[in-house]
Design a protein around this nucleic acid. Structure first.
Lengths: 252, 252
DNA sequence: AAGTGGTCTAGACCACGTG
DNA sequence: ACGTGGTCTAGACCACTTA
């Protein structure tokens, strides 16, 4: 994990950010909605101003505070941003909202990659990939269909998992696979015949689609996935400040 | 705009980031996909390492590069991240993709705020708000329905606009209104009777919904909007690294 | 005029990856 | 052993807000 030492200690600025987040959520600055100055926070926590600013950058990116020259930072709200893993993994997400995640593997294929697949995974055209189709449940109710494509080396580990394994990211991280970056693309798509059958909806019913592409710290693609949610199960929230943009809107 | 001096000059790290982005997109590092070291970039551009790192943080947040201790940064791809305004404003977005935006105001109301409205806009319970309903077009074809609620002071400016005004954000920024932060929430919703009529779709047809809430640099809410797109018009893309998360997934 | 955040510098030490 | 990025420090100057 980033910023974590061998002993498991967090970087100072992460710890400071976590403390401030907790203080904000608990309403510690509710009287005027303003944070203490950087200088006073630095002194109070025994760190330099640079460290305070790193912590603030995290809070800003997460939409908790805004800032401008000349005045103290202002609390925007107690936006509940999730960890990297709660976004990457259905299992982590379900647990974070206090629900019970489930998974059932419907199909595993080990085939030569299609053009779209070897391009997404940056493989040679004749590479083979694993395709895994899973039904994901919340409280035993099917809510999402997950079609994931893995490169050979990763897929081999997945194929070993039992069909009722809840998490697939878990075994991967246990095997030393490190997820570093993910790109999520969100749109709407109609259910195809398989979707309809496995999610118990009618064909052409609208689904919320989240396509994910994950890479490891070296930039190597680890997986490419097409996840389709029944309506009313999830929504996605993004914070976006004039300082920094990470979301983009594309013509579909 | 953030980081822009009175003379219009950019901060050094923004200019550096822009240069590097251009170099990446044009394939300058395609031979091995690795960036020069921070130290060499600092020397080459005549800045300190700290400034180089600020530029890198931007590229990282935009999903262009990944990084880890011990090795040089790796190019992930030429992700096309959009400016703050291309995300905030339908008009800016349409122009950025080379399409022709249009707008037609269908209804303007000046009423006492409903509970959900004064809460979103952080107003007193007896405040009045403006509600504006607009049909947005791409190449004269209706693609989106925009329901925006403005606090009194902002709504007054909007109500003065002609019904066929293309942009509403433009007049606001011209009037000195500064947008600093926006929260976008994306999900799926069925068309209601009004949606169906104005977008020429059937009632209960699936729409991609983007709810926006914008604030100025002081944290004051400027608008709250519910935008509904016909399927196939837009998709949303978010980059998410282990270092930093700005997207969250919620139970709908 | 005083206080605040935004930018930039120069230097230090550390953890990690590679040879 | 060496180079790399990650973290932290101490200080400086500036732009902006507020009084």
């Amino acid at each position: 994990m980033a910023g974590v030492g061998r002993d498991g200690s967090q970087a100072q600025f992460r710890e400071l950010a976590a403390n401030l987040r907790e203080a904000i959520v608990s309403g510690a600055f509710a009287h005027d909605g303003r944070l203490p100055s950087e200088a006073s926070l630095a002194e109070e926590h025994g760190v330099s101003r640079g460290t305070v600013r790193q912590a603030m950058a995290l809070l800003r990116a997460n939409g908790l505070v805004t800032s401008r020259r000349g005045t103290r930072r202002v609390v925007l709200g107690a936006a509940r941003t999730q960890s990297f893993f709660e976004l990457l993994s259905f299992t982590h997400w379900a647990r974070s909202i206090g629900d019970e995640p489930g998974g059932r593997t419907v199909d595993v294929q080990h085939r030569q990659a299609l053009p779209a697949e070897y391009e997404q995974l940056q493989l040679e055209p004749d590479s083979s990939v694993y395709r895994v189709l899973r039904v994901r449940t919340l409280s035993r109710v099917p809510v999402m269909l997950e079609r994931t494509v893995y490169p050979e080396s990763i897929g081999r580990l997945i194929a070993e998992q039992p069909r009722d394994a809840v998490s697939h990211t878990g075994p991967l991280t246990d095997a030393g696979i490190v997820f570093a970056d993910v790109t999520h693309t969100i749109d709407l798509c109609p259910a195809d015949a398989d979707d309809a059958l496995l999610l118990s909806c009618s064909e052409a019913a609208p689904l919320l689609r989240e396509r994910r592409r994950a890479t490891d710290p070296t930039g190597r693609p680890l997986l490419s996935s097409d996840d389709r949610f029944l309506p009313g199960i999830v929504s996605f929230t993004v914070h976006n400040s004039a300082q920094q943009t990470a979301l983009s809107r594309r013509r579909a």
